[in-house]
Design a protein around this nucleic acid. Sequence first.
DNA 1: TGTTAGCACTCTCCTTGTTCGAGTGCTAAT
DNA 2: ATTAGCACTCGAACAAGGAGAGTGCTAACA
Lengths: 347, 347
Amino acid sequence: MEPLDERSKQILYAIIQSYINKPDPVGSRFVTKKYAFGFSPATIRNIMADLEELGFLSQPHTSAGRVPTDKGYRFYVNSLLGQDRNPDTSGIESAFIDNFSRKLDDIKNDINGMFSEVSNTLSSMSSYVGVALPPKPEKTHFNRIDFMKYKGDHVVAVILTDEGVMKHKIIKTDPLLSQDDLNRIAEYLNSEYAGRTIDDIKSVLIGRMKADKVLWDKLISRAITLCEEILSFSESDIYFSGLHDVMNLPDFSDISKIKEISKAIKDKHTILRLLDQLSNNEGVQVMIGNENPVDEMKNLSIVTSTYKEGDSHMGLIALIGPTRMDYSKAIFMVETVAGCISRTLKG
Amino acid sequence: MEPLDERSKQILYAIIQSYINKPDPVGSRFVTKKYAFGFSPATIRNIMADLEELGFLSQPHTSAGRVPTDKGYRFYVNSLLGQDRNPDTSGIESAFIDNFSRKLDDIKNDINGMFSEVSNTLSSMSSYVGVALPPKPEKTHFNRIDFMKYKGDHVVAVILTDEGVMKHKIIKTDPLLSQDDLNRIAEYLNSEYAGRTIDDIKSVLIGRMKADKVLWDKLISRAITLCEEILSFSESDIYFSGLHDVMNLPDFSDISKIKEISKAIKDKHTILRLLDQLSNNEGVQVMIGNENPVDEMKNLSIVTSTYKEGDSHMGLIALIGPTRMDYSKAIFMVETVAGCISRTLKG
DNA sequence: TGTTAGCACTCTCCTTGTTCGAGTGCTAAT
DNA sequence: ATTAGCACTCGAACAAGGAGAGTGCTAACA
């Protein structure tokens, strides 16, 4: 990407900010009025023409103003990501963080409630669609498992992790196993594996299974496979919110646009895979419009951030909105909320 | 309501069916062509004018065809509800029922999965919004409770009912209680209360609490209050699906219409209260447009049916769609699915 | 008396034409 | 390098007119 001179940059940013603020194509006259660069419209026009040639802007039609392209947004976002972003945390922001942190702390033991709260907050503060993915199960730390006999030949297995992830599954077993048997198995598992990650347990298990095959270990290994199964990520572990509010954005005044974003949310598979890819890189990431590998989302942008517990990053949160997104705000929000989550998980 | 002569009825039904089929105002000429009543358009016109005067039809504007009013739909639906409706269950319907019943049976132990499946099926078969409410907790039968110590001063309580409802809650307790204590409490509760309904247990408890106040019973009573709390209905226990598909209906081509239905879904409180009212009456019920007490839903219709386990009705399912709903189909679907659920819960 | 044909009328929708304003690109002057 | 001026383009908004669908009413008919 050839370097833009400072003046062109400033004008590009001005145009983008103006467009983000109000989705009207912005004309040269408007730029000179609103942002006092000290140049006449004609000069601005020249620069705009250059910017268009470089692919940062486009015209809906001759004689309309300019509109940022995805490439334009990308340039803008890169500059945002590059700069040190600590908007005055003394103002409302700080109050919000305190408040939100306290709320999280209250419900940190109920991971479901917590992440549904997170997605709600994200969406209501931004008016975009908020997404929250709880910690990846295999990264979490096994806390305890319990088995409960249920209706004769069924067993309910309940698993807890240190992070507060709680899952259960009802399975059919042979009715020979008594509740006592189950308790002993559970006790063994709890004492043996508490505190270790699921990944860890898995690898231990593989070695152990090779070692011996007595009944007891068979049961155990079956229990562990069960753990694995139970703790695997399921579609219902993804939290969305804000579809309703997003409809108020002018970008989605058309029903087909709404369908796009609603489809994106509905196809949890797709978005889960997409977010999974993003979760490999740490920190804030932005995916703009056509950068998105999923066809149905070429008109949408995603701003994500991973959160972590200690050193390992656990999961991520995201905002999905139109390409004409307030990236500055979105990035700030996502980053801040991720920070709160990390802090809560740590404490 | 003054009785309509047979001919007028037939014409009214024809108009409604045609309009349900395709949302174009239907004219007198069209009626004579499509449905061979053997009368000329002029005659039909006279009758239509009468029907309009009676409030069953209305004209969007002079010289457009007629459109059914809510009152018209009501008349039509009443006739549907009155008649014996057993559409040939030999055809696809029967295959569907078999298939669906089998599916339900597979997952009947996981009540969440089951009801999310129900709402999915409802919506995908009808292209309206499917709603499913799991059995009211207080009507369900307590099966067992277990307590698990968690992180020193917390306890996880897990409750199961015979119907497969499973809930859990993490509470803070004094760390004095050992896991053994907890086990004993659980064992006591399980042996004492298994098989009884929550309602039942509540009333027993009230008597017991008055009787004595020794520590043991204090613990128990606390545990039971906990049961109550855990088992109380929460907003997340309502399953919606199909908002995305509903957007394809011409009735929702306008974004403001979509907002209406999306708001109805979002405000779980409101709809929960509404459905709760409906759940007092047994069987299929239809609420058309302005019959709806909720202002935001005056343009929507709801078709519900309760399902039961044995004799007591447990919860309900519903379809929400435009007033121009295919009531015949919706009623059939809701009734059929409710039947499947009842059968599954029984078996 | 119920039904029908005929006719004038009404209203929407679509097309066409026109104007207006915003914004552009280009060129010549500064 | 910047600016003023000017001709040009395009879309939005509005008005006018015609086509089409459907109505209500009246008079004739079986």
